[in-house]
Design a protein around this nucleic acid. Structure first.
Length: 683
RNA sequence: GGCUACGUAGCUCAGUUGGUUAGAGCGCAGCACUCAUAAUGCUGAUGUCGGUGGUUCAACUCCACCCGUAGCCA
């Protein structure tokens, strides 16, 4: 085998503002599998991560809860650590960006870049909240879209019409924190001159550090021209104050990736013989890999290597981006219960399932992956329980009952065993290239072969014939030796199952280089089920609990806020008072949705056929961003029945259905309690 | 809107530089088996490879346009 490599692996730092959910886990599981594989190969591989603990949202959240930011991030860090540990994410160190190490490196990197003239400074004009006495990030300014007039839009772009603009262009802008009208104020900011690094970045990109699609994306950014990056924020801010610049703080995105170094330094300081410089000095031959989501490519493929280079550190060997997770083909949704927190999953399901399922779908590219819950159940049960674990289960009984758990002195089918060992090299190759789905597929192909072997040799027939004891022992020993190889191959993906299997086989933790040595004349422990099947009821429970999470969260959120300045009533105040007669003019009826279909050429519209118990109406409803047509059929809702028909490009709309919410995925159609019949008037 | 990807059997996905009848797993149908957590083995059916044009002796694979999906636009 090749030389021993020194490898440092990181996952992106989760924000210390909320819980880990299964979308996050795609990345941690992918990285963990890769790191475990490298360790199993005998390389010196370190996997570090940290909480990303700075920034305005954390400051505000802490204030809202009436605690210090430090208390908030300590609590969240605790939860994150527990979630990761239970999913068997095997960090060698988990640190925080709010740490002395990170302050040291953030300041060092800034200072060195400053000395070389890569930091500029100038005065900019920015929105300021006079009540809260703070500058407002774009996402904390809301107002009406300057293009289409849609209310309640964020400061950068409009969710209704898709227009992009600057916060200054918003009509009737308000601070999302206090509700006050923002003022424009001047402030001095510091900028990282990214343009200084264009040649260096182009060379770095060309050196194969990025996936093809990502390199394409960078080419686009190069063509557009690299602009300066604002790395400072004004007080009040939760972060590190910039040296010699009182009241100015490093923007959270400056010190976040530096957290990789800080976490590693923290590990080095506690680990005999582990040298920080071996990994981070310029010209280091150690490998450094950053696993990230595709949404943060910009920071990791441009700013991060440029900052490092400007501060005389080595740049990452490669940055690996992955896609997002969808559940049942759609974005994770709180209302559907598919916004599943790590803890909620763990309450009901074995983490090994999800590790395997993600592995079975992950490739080296940036494509999104889908968690199809039906497929998840079928795949885990068929592959892991039916094929893999079953091999051990069907051999173990004979060995313990008839041979005191002792394996034969030789391998019954050396050819077959050797073919498995050979396949291991190609599987290792798949792991190395992050083709986890290929690795999983190949191992399952081998599991099929193992089951075929057992079927061909029919130990249950041999067992009933006198004088064939030795043969029976050979067959079952062979089966277990194949099982041992499969477990070895899957160990990076299924560390918990592998551990249990190792206990069963009474062997030390498997490494890749011991795999070709079969177990002979060896005693095993009595067999215990290594993994149980996924029950559809468990999946249902996870979805149900995820919906409950939302409900309790809502209750928590709205109550203390009633007197606060944020909320629906602030965003959209209650209208002027009307008389009962005014209301009576609106004829509301219970309507059953008899049919629903997407409207071609309109990505927001559904064509609904409403049954009013005597007549039917066609209504075009702008709810497609939140509902699938097939999910609506059969539901009852409320419609305005005497609304003047309106001609639309797609036909005539004969009324409207009632729904709440700001739009996008947050649209909530009104429902009616059981018993209400189509056509009944609502008053 | 611009850009980057993706769109292959009911489902989840493979298909290397264009080349004989397009593959796997799950699901489905039938048969076998009963050692095993009803777990396994064998056999079989199923696809105008998103659409339309084009290049070519030959295209799922290349090109153009269109449709749909996802993301990015600092």
């Amino acid at each position: 085998m090749s030389r021993t490599r020194a490898i440092l692996v990181t996952s992106a730092l989760p924000y210390a503002n909320g819980p880990i959910h299964i979308g996050h886990l795609v990345e941690y599981i992918q990285t963990d599998i890769w790191a475990r594989f490298q360790k199993m190969r005998g390389h010196r591989c370190y996997y570090v991560c940290a909480d990303d603990a700075h920034g305005t949202p954390i400051m505000l959240r802490a204030r809202q809860e009436g605690i210090s930011p430090e208390t908030l991030i300590a609590r969240v860090a605790e939860e994150h650590r527990a979630d990761f540990a239970d999913f068997r994410i095997g960090f060698d160190n988990y640190h925080s960006t709010h740490s002395p190490e990170n302050r040291y490196f953030a300041c060092l990197i800034y200072q060195r870049n400053l000395e070389k003239g890569h930091i500029a400074s100038r005065v900019i004009t920015q929105a300021y909240d006079p009540v809260e006495q703070m500058f407002l990030p774009d996402r904390f300014i809301k107002g009406e879209c300057p293009k289409c007039g849609a209310p309640d839009q964020y400061g950068d772009n409009c969710e209704a019409c898709g227009a992009s603009y600057s916060p200054a262009e918003l009509k009737n802008p308000r601070s999302a924190i206090s509700g006050a009208t923002p003022e424009q104020r001047e402030s001095q900011h510091f900028f990282f001159r990214l343009g200084d690094f264009e040649d260096m970045l182009k060379a770095w990109t060309a050196s194969g550090s990025l996936q093809r699609e990502v390199a394409n994306k960078l080419g686009e950014w190069f063509d557009a021209g690299l602009q300066e990056w604002d790395i400072s924020r004004d007080a009040p801010y939760f972060g590190f104050e910039i040296p010699d610049q009182a009241g100015k703080y490093f923007y959270v995105w400056l010190d976040a990736p530096i957290g990789y170094m800080a976490s590693f330094k923290h590990l080095c300081d506690r680990t005999e013989g582990l040298s920080f410089d071996e990994f981070w000095a310029p010209g280091s031959t150690a490998e450094v890999y950053n696993f990230i989501g595709k949404d943060i490519i910009y920071f990791h493929a441009l700013f991060w290597p440029a900052m490092l280079h400007g501060a005389d550190f080595r740049t990452p060997t490669a940055v690996f981006a992955h896609g997002f997770l969808t559940v049942d083909g759609q974005k994770m949704s709180k209302s559907r219960g598919t916004f599943i927190k790590a803890r909620t999953y763990l309450d009901h399901l074995n983490p090994e399932y999800l590790r395997y399922y993600f592995a079975a779908k992950l490739g080296p590219g940036v494509e999104d992956i889908d968690l199809n819950l039906e497929d998840f159940t079928a795949r885990v049960n068929a592959d892991l329980v039916g094929k893999l674990v079953n091999i051990a289960s069907r051999c173990a009984g004979f060995l313990s009952k008839r041979f005191d758990g002792r394996l034969s002195g030789e391998v019954a089918d050396p050819e077959l065993f050797a073919s498995f060992v050979r396949a291991g090299e190609s599987i290792a190759d798949a792991y190395e290239r992050r083709e986890l789905s290929r690795a999983a597929r190949d191992v399952m192909g081998l599991a099929d072969r193992a089951n075929q072997y057992i079927d061909e040799r029919a130990p249950w027939v041999v067992a009933k014939q006198a004088g064939r004891d030795r043969e029976l022992q050979d067959i079952c020993s062979m089966g277990l030796n194949l099982f041992r190889l499969l477990i070895g191959f899957l160990r990076p993906i299924l560390p918990g199952t592998a551990e249990a299997a190792e206990a069963f086989l009474r062997i030390p933790p498997l490494t890749w280089d011991v795999l070709p040595e079969p177990l002979v004349d060896h005693e095993i422990a009595p067999f215990k089920p290594l993994m149980t099947r996924v029950e559809p009821a468990q999946i249902a429970a996870v979805l149900e609990a995820s919906r409950e999470d939302l409900a309790s969260q809502d209750a928590r959120k709205t109550k203390p806020h009633e007197t606060r300045t944020e909320g629906h009533l602030v965003r959209e105040p209650i209208g002027e008072t009307i008389e009962l007669a005014d209301f009576a003019r609106v004829d509301l009826r219970v309507a059953r949705i008899a049919a629903a279909e997407a409207v071609d050429g309109a990505d927001k519209l559904l064509r609904l056929t409403l049954d009013l118990g005597g007549e039917t109406r066609t209504v075009f409803a702008g709810i497609r961003t939140a509902y699938r047509a097939e999910d609506l059929v059969g539901r009852s809702t409320v419609m305005v029945a005497n609304l003047a028909p309106r001609k639309m490009r797609f036909g005539i709309s004969e009324g409207m259905v009632l729904a709440a919410g700001p739009g996008g995925s947050e649209i909530y159609l009104l429902g009616v309690d059981a018993g209400a019949e189509p056509g009944m008037r609502v008053r």
